[in-house]
Design a protein around this nucleic acid. Sequence first.
DNA 1: GATATTTAAATGTGATCACAAAATAGAGAT
DNA 2: ATCTCTATTTTGTGATCACATTTAAATATC
Lengths: 245, 245
Amino acid sequence: MAAVTKIDAGLTASGSNQKKQAPELGAVMHEHVYNRLRDALITGRLTPGRALSVRGIAAEFDVSAMPAREAIRQLAAVGALEFTDTRRVSIAKMTAEKLEEIKTARLLLEPILAERSLISVAGKQREKRRLLRSLEKHDAALDAAIRRGDVSQYTQYNSAFHFELYRASGSAVLIDLVESLWLRFGPFMRVVIGRLGTSCLIDDRHKDIMEAIEAEDAKALKKAVRDDLLHGMNNIDVAEIEADT
Amino acid sequence: MAAVTKIDAGLTASGSNQKKQAPELGAVMHEHVYNRLRDALITGRLTPGRALSVRGIAAEFDVSAMPAREAIRQLAAVGALEFTDTRRVSIAKMTAEKLEEIKTARLLLEPILAERSLISVAGKQREKRRLLRSLEKHDAALDAAIRRGDVSQYTQYNSAFHFELYRASGSAVLIDLVESLWLRFGPFMRVVIGRLGTSCLIDDRHKDIMEAIEAEDAKALKKAVRDDLLHGMNNIDVAEIEADT
DNA sequence: GATATTTAAATGTGATCACAAAATAGAGAT
DNA sequence: ATCTCTATTTTGTGATCACATTTAAATATC
């Protein structure tokens, strides 16, 4: 079998041997495939440049070609996958220009999304508590993953932390845009972390974010989110990117 | 035949009787279907709430179900189409919240995209001239469409004007995001214009945009783009939206 | 041993079929 | 006319096949 089709190691959660995962309740097969692939992309289990194929994905998830095709096309539509000149599909590679665009867009959208979430929970003690508790849970798991050096778990909980925060805003459109950005950035993020090690991650601004929510300080929250993004993206050496692509 | 499937009038360019359109060079059938549907959405030829179906689209474009399925799924992935609870697909309806989100995101992204375009042509007289000439051409055609009261042509040239401007930036990611926003907004825009008439459109800021590019004044350009968007979106009565959905 | 050429395998695309669920239409009763 | 229940049609989904093209492997050539 060709190497490009065998992506088992990339799709299975790191350290886990379970190949199958029960489909979500009420989800059809192509949605199941889509969700698993999306998670694999956001957490960086699929490395940039890796080639995918309809039949490869189908075999991976033990389905026919149809659900695999639909999932792949959907992911390509949001920019997570890209097509070669011969319509073969692969994880998009990163370029310095693209990275700069993603950074710009994230800095524009994510602080606002956080602010909207704060607005929607401000004053409502129950909801605010629930959100903060959830964020703290993700942050604790995230810190533990950093200490263990588990990159996969870290990315998982980091995205969970951020999207838990953003979802509280109820701003579906903006979240869609941001998710598209994370899908483009995820595979590359993993490469960066893999090189620098998880130690570079400990100094995030999640505590500041939670404190700002607690204090209902929108300005501080926006700054904390902004700083968190910058912290995550600024130690990326553009030269390394170019060398890698 | 059920009414929901018959979308002929919506997909054919207004005033035109030609049903077939030659596929783009090198494009496969599902890309052809996607492009035609995307244009129909951006120019508002498909009204919000309208139900689509795989077989209906397939019949419309004289292809089998496969290309129709792929095109529909791709458009749903970027938010242009939405699924009902029973996985039937339809043109998304507008809500006040969604409209506000789209407006926010457009105001964040489009002025910056315009500024980037200016930066990329600033100083380069040839490229600047070419861009301005192209913009003037679209703007003239747009004005003519307004005077004729031709909503379809107007939306066509208006999107052409904006994306011609944005494409000059070379910022593919940001353009993707903005295109997603236009796809969500297009069908609804048509409804609004249809009610207010094209007369409300003449007062756009396209001349200001072109003058700012000519003068290479980034600040003025951002303001002109911002004002243009606000002009296009501010005369929308939220109450009407709610009544419509 | 490196390079060109041929052969085999893999891949994207389009078409068609089957099936269950859902929407629609129609008949009948009130 | 209005509602209810049934029958028909429509629809999304998944599976499978065929075909042309591309990629990878194997073989031959120098």
